[in-house]
């Protein structure tokens, strides 16, 4: 395999994974505070459509991105209201909003189907993009892709290295003790859920303004569900969540490389487009299954503990549970 091909493939994985990265990082933030936003698939579709429609109408990709983020944040705010104030079942509300988002995106997006429109301009970062190998892989994209890279590091740093980030973990892990220490649990949950939703909206904009330009029926093709699964796989840790997202990107890239191979010409293309989804979910399943426990039991305990910690994480203690704040 030549180096040029490898660089190209890696660069395309970095850019095509950006929506999944942004969505799963956004979901990590909101789940870390204790709220499950299950609406991802619908949120991404509706924000991708809105982003493109606004960019198309105003001829400004920037306005499109902002509108998409607003849509994502608004849906997340609805989920926060339903689960924190009304104490409805989060998964139920999220599921209904998924369906509503998908249908609304189709209905409102109808006039924009397959229209050519604006996109985010390509912008190699000066100097950095000249670094051999790393430059073309990481720094030869557009601003949204850089934001996806930045969101990983920034979220990790905020959660584990800053005071408010430690508080955020407390709110998700043990809301009772956080409250006893004077943290306004429900307000923080509102804030982080909405913030996470804005990132999910950005994921949608990245899709329609940078990866798969424009809008069409079922344009965003189920990536919301993948992002939700990756958050669990990544054990609610931004770095591992990102690793999971790129792993999914790798599976998709492998799929399209195999598809071009004449040996697989008889296999229908639909199999190649849906196989990464099935493979991804079953990889996640395998890693979380009891079979892995048994394998780990055969290893020396210290090594087993390390591996266990490396491949799995524990859900925040207060995830999905409403908190009564006197």
């Amino acid at each position: 395999m030549n180096v040029e091909f490898l660089i190209q493939t890696l660069a395309s994985i970095v850019s095509s994974s950006a929506p999944v990265v942004l969505a799963s990082i956004g979901e990590t933030i909101s789940e870390k505070s204790g709220v499950i936003n299950l609406s991802l698939d619908g949120s991404i579709a509706l924000s991708a459509m809105t982003g493109f429609a606004v960019a198309y109408t105003t001829d400004s990709a920037t306005l499109g991105v902002l509108a998409a983020m607003a849509v994502g944040a608004l849906i997340a705010l609805l989920i926060a209201f339903a689960s924190i104030t009304l104490r409805l079942e989060q998964v139920a509300v999220g599921f209904v909003l998924t369906m509503l988002g998908l249908e609304l995106a189709d209905f409102l997006g109808n006039p924009f189907v397959r229209q050519p429109g604006p996109s985010i301009p390509h912008w190699p970062i000066p100097l950095l993009s000249d670094i051999p190998f790393i430059g073309p892989v990481l720094f030869n994209h557009n601003i949204l892709i850089y934001i996806s890279l930045l969101s990983i590091v920034a979220t990790w740093w905020w959660m584990y290295k800053t005071q408010p980030g430690i508080k955020l973990q407390g709110v998700g892990e043990r809301p009772e003790s956080a409250f006893a220490r004077g943290v306004n649990v429900n307000r923080m949950r509102y804030v982080y859920t909405t913030l996470g939703g804005a990132l999910v909206g950005l994921a949608g904009a990245t899709y329609s303004l940078s990866i798969k330009l424009g809008w069409s029926h079922r344009h965003t093709a189920g990536i919301g569900w993948i992002a939700l699964a990756i958050v669990i796989f990544g054990g609610w840790n931004p770095l591992r969540v990102a690793a999971g997202s790129y792993f999914f990107g790798l599976l998709k890239a492998l799929g399209s490389i195999l598809q071009r191979n004449p040996a697989f010409a008889s296999v229908p293309t639909q199999i190649f487009s849906s196989a990464p989804f099935a493979l991804m979910i079953f990889t996640l399943l395998l890693l979380s299954s009891k079979g892995v426990d048994r394998l780990l039991d055969m290893l020396p305990p210290r090594l087993a503990r390390r591996i266990d910690r490396a491949i799995r994480g524990r859900a925040p203690g207060g995830l999905g549970r409403p908190f009564e704040q006197g």
């Binding site: 339903a82 009304l86 104490r87 369906m99 249908e103």
Partner: peptide, 27 residues
């Protein structure tokens, strides 16, 4: 010349309204 997904919008928003109204009553 509207998209037929309005049917789906109606269905999903009915469910959402039922949930919100019941949550509101409990509140």
């Amino acid at each position: 010349h509207l998209d037929s997904s309005l049917g789906g919008v109606l269905e999903a928003s009915v469910v959402l309204s039922v949930m919100f109204v019941s949550g509101w009553r409990v509140l």
